Amino acid sequence: MVPDNLRAGVTKNTRFETVIPRAYLEMAEYYDTAIVPASVKSPDDKPNAEGSVKFATTWILAALRSFHFFSLAEAKEAAAQKLEELNNRPFQKRVCSRRSAYETEEKEFMLPLPEGPFEPAVWATAKVPNDYCVSDRINRYSVPFDLIGERVDIRITKNMVEVLFHGSRVAYHMRLPKAQRDPVVIPEHMPEAHRKYLSYTKDSFLSWAEPIGPYTLQTVRHFLMADKEPEQGYKYCASLMRATDRYGRTRIESACERVLSFSSVPTLRNIQTVLKNGQDKVPLNSGPQIPVSQAKRCHGITRSADAFRKGGINI
């Protein structure tokens, strides 16, 4: 059976050019043959091939029209037997049969077939998006990240997804039959920063935070457990690791301690603010002590009822 993408035959055939579909041309190259289109309108050379096919089909179907088959295998076997009978049947105007004519006139010009049958492919063209993944309409597959914004050719078969750029293959993936949540990504296709992200796990972040101190460990645990999935907190943990490279472990531990002293929900923004302002360098509970006598007289803007009793307090 000829696949649907090969039924169209020649797209365009004029005296100036012949346009052949890519999948059809690929099949011809695979079998090391050439496609010679027939002339337009009423070609005299076309019936030579199609007439024989029509005659064989009509003869076999007419011979089997009274038979009943209960499986496709039985029908195929019967058709094959009738085809052998037709090939050995003598011509009416020649002293030979179709088989003997093939063996004496055509067989020596036949080329050996490839080891495997041709696998039809669907071709498509797409622009590589920012996530450097292309789609086969079921799953998404990675290409080298430096092709972002470029147009590539995608060759899709039953078991393979192949990506070509300017005629050269740049990516190759085994095609997945079922839809997957995550794209199929080859680490070599990713930039260095994205490649490092693949190595992140919940346990790796906890192992990194534990030697720094209990407050950093508590902060990292909050990042990993605040949402439904630990992966949602990977970004904050990674940013905290980068901040450690800049400020050092001691300052990170002090900043986490200060943020946790006034909030049970630490945020990366608060930690970065403490580090930028240097508040982590100031010990906790080290502010100047206000005498009790002055504390009673200093009410700020808001005053209680005592401030207005018996004329208030002289300030």
Rank of each mutant, 00 (worst) to 15 (best):
F70P: 01
A63M: 12
E85Y: 03
N87I: 02
M1P: 10
S286L: 06
G9F: 07
S207C: 07
V292F: 11
R15E: 12
V128F: 03
D131S: 12
H189I: 07
D245P: 00
E188H: 08
I154Q: 05
A79W: 00
G116Y: 10
K158I: 07
V161E: 02
E103H: 11
G300R: 06
A28I: 04
V143D: 09
M174P: 00
R169G: 04
A73Q: 10
K310E: 15
Y31Q: 11
M190V: 08
E103W: 07
E108V: 00
D280L: 03
S199H: 11
A75H: 01
K107A: 14
R99N: 09
R249A: 09
G278T: 10
P3I: 01
I138L: 11
P183I: 00
F205Q: 04
N87V: 03
C256G: 08
P43L: 01
S135Q: 04
M190W: 09
G311N: 10
A226Y: 14
F165S: 14
K202F: 05
W208R: 07
Q289D: 10
A121R: 12
P114T: 02
L164F: 15
V292Q: 05
G51V: 03
T267Q: 11
K202W: 03
S39T: 15
N159L: 06
R15S: 11
R258Q: 15
T201R: 13
F145D: 07
F67K: 13
F69G: 09
E229A: 06
N270K: 15
V10R: 09
P3N: 04
T125Q: 09
N130C: 04
R297I: 13
L176I: 11
S42A: 08
R89Y: 04
L113F: 13
E84G: 01
A8C: 10
Q272R: 13
Q180V: 12
S239V: 14
P114W: 01
S42Q: 07
L72F: 06
P144H: 05
K41G: 02
P187I: 15
R175V: 05
V220W: 06
M110D: 12
E29M: 08
P21V: 00
E29H: 14
S71A: 12
A23F: 03
S254K: 09
D182N: 12
D306A: 12
E150W: 00
I60W: 00
R269W: 11
G167L: 04
M190E: 09
G213I: 09
D280A: 14
Y141H: 15
G248T: 02
G51T: 10
N88C: 08
E253D: 10
L224I: 07
R22M: 09
Q289Y: 11
E119L: 05
N270V: 02
R140L: 03
N277W: 10
H299N: 07
P21L: 01
E188Y: 09
K281D: 12
F308Q: 10
P129A: 14
K41S: 11
T244I: 02
V161S: 05
W208S: 06
N270I: 02
G213C: 08
P291A: 05
N277V: 06
Y31D: 10
R155G: 01
L6T: 01
T201G: 12
F165T: 02
L198V: 13
F118G: 03
C256V: 05
T244C: 15
P291N: 10
S261M: 06
